[in-house]
Structure formats: structure tokens, C-alpha cells
Simulated scan of single mutants.
Amino acid sequence: MILDQSAKKAFNSFNQSLWKKLERKEITRTQLFEGRFHTFFKNYFHMEIDGNVCSAQYLSYLAHGHEEIDGASQILNDLFKVNKQILLATNGVFKTQIQRINDAQITHFFEHIFTSEKIGVEKPDPRFFEYLFAHSHALPAKTLIIGDSLSSDILGGINAGIDTAWFNPLSTQNFSQIKPKYQIENLSEIKQFT
């Protein structure tokens, strides 16, 4: 078995398709985590593996990997200095996300960290945002969600009736029906909304 660029690309595409199914409630988190490696290895490499073991190892590696998006620390610091309330909202695995945020040394910027795993529903479900607003001091009319996913972050914000900004650093064309209020290519552009 060779894990070359072709295999990595195929896995990333397959993995993203599963996350999209999760967002649409077509599968459960358990089905995603238990099935993604087993199914991928069976279909791509014609191998039978224990998907749970592979998933646990993958999440362990993922938890210890983080790469700062250009300007992220600076914009977080700038917003924090002017007392902007910063919340983190993710569909990612709680333990993995917390480890990555801690390792990146940015935990102190966030007043709250909301994960779908703890809330029990995934973005874009409006209940995710109902929970967020019920458990923070954020007000929908004064909230802007900034995210890189049209189907979870931006659609979730639209479903919740809040302003949305699509972080699109590669200037990817949006062919979907999901229309963010704003689009930014660089995190420094967030300053225009403060």
C-alpha cells in the first residue's frame, strides 16, 4: 500500500463527502467515524481494516497538528484588545479541537468554544446556534459568523438569521445557492466589520 498524493486526494474528497452527509443528517457522527477508514481502505486499496482503530489514530495525529492561517493570531489579538466577544463554533471532534487550540496558544481569545459533539447537533442546524446564543452573551443582531464552509458555517449563519462572512482565501467561485453576506480573502479584512 502506498499513500501517495492520489490516495490523499481521494481520501480528502471521500472524507469531505461524509462531512457533508453529516451536515445534511444523512449519516450520524458514529457512522462517519466508524465507517470512513474502513470504507475508504476497502474501496481504494481493497483492504479490510479496523476503522475504529484507524480513526482513533488519525484523530490523535490530527489533535497534535495545527498550522496558523496567515494573520489569525494578529486578528484575534486585535479583536481581543478592543473587547470584541469571540466565540469558536466547530463541527470538529471536541478533544481534537481543544488540543489543537491549546497547542496553538489561542485558547484565551475565546469566551466560549462550542462543538457540535457537545451540543448534539451539527452546523448548519439552527439548534446549534440556538444553543450558542442561549449559553453566551452573544446577540444574533450583533453576531457575525466567519467560516470557510459554505454548507456548515455560512448556511448555518443564514439559518440562524445572523450575518455571514465566507473566508475564501483561494477565491473559489461559489456555484451554490448559499450566498454569504460578505466574502473575505484575508483575515485582516475582518477589521472592517468591527
Rank of each mutant, 00 (worst) to 15 (best):
F41T: 06
A56H: 13
F110I: 04
T96G: 00
E185S: 14
I145V: 15
K21Y: 07
K42D: 10
T172C: 02
I113G: 02
F114H: 07
D148H: 04
P126S: 13
L139C: 12
D148V: 05
E68P: 09
I106F: 08
T194K: 10
K123E: 08
R29S: 11
T28V: 09
F45C: 00
V53T: 09
S151H: 04
A10L: 05
S171C: 01
Y182M: 03
R36L: 01
T28I: 09
T194P: 00
Q173W: 05
F167Y: 15
E189W: 07
F109M: 06
Q173I: 10
T90P: 02
N83P: 03
F80A: 01
Q31A: 09
A165G: 06
S13N: 10
H112G: 00
F80Y: 13
I113A: 03
Q16R: 06
E122K: 03
E68Y: 15
G35D: 08
S136K: 12
R100C: 03
A138S: 15
N174K: 04
A134Q: 15
L76F: 13
K95N: 11
T164D: 09
F40T: 03
I178M: 03
A63K: 13
S116L: 03
A10I: 01
G120V: 06
D4N: 15
T194W: 14
T90S: 15
E189R: 07
P140N: 13
E67G: 00
A72R: 10
H64D: 14
A56S: 13
F94D: 11
N91P: 03
F40S: 03
L150M: 08
R100S: 14
L187H: 10
D163H: 12
T164A: 07
L22N: 08
F33R: 10
I75F: 09
P124M: 07
L170S: 11
A72Q: 10
E189H: 09
E130S: 14
Q31W: 02
Q192L: 01
S136A: 09
A10T: 04
Q99R: 12
